[in-house]
């Protein structure tokens, strides 16, 4: 499963809870859980862009994990 581009709205939709995904990848859970708190304190477009970039990088670095592959399938459901 390939990774959505950085410009894909899926990344911000996940952080803004417009898209609910039951993640298997533990690092994604804990990153997103904290990123939501950080965004709540600083809800600027710049901060959202930074956090979505970091979220995508987390997935990009771990594409070979079975849990990440499983999670990516859920992006389009």
């Amino acid at each position: 499963m390939s990774l959505p581009e950085a410009t894909n709205l899926i990344w911000s939709d996940i952080l803004l809870e417009h898209k609910q995904i039951d993640f298997k990848f533990f690092a994604a859970k804990i990153f997103i859980g904290n990123a939501k708190l950080i965004y709540k304190d600083d809800p600027t477009p710049q901060n959202l862009q930074k956090l979505t970039k970091e979220l995508r990088e987390l997935f990009a670095k771990n594409l070979n994990l079975p849990t990440v592959q499983e999670d990516l399938k859920k992006f389009y459901k």
């Binding site: 039951d22 993640f23 533990f26 859970k29 804990i30 997103i32 859980g33 904290n34 939501k36």
Partner: peptide, 9 residues
């Protein structure tokens, strides 16, 4: 217990 996007902390 806090729910961090599915991770129970």
């Amino acid at each position: 217990v806090a729910d961090y996007n599915g991770a129970m902390i």
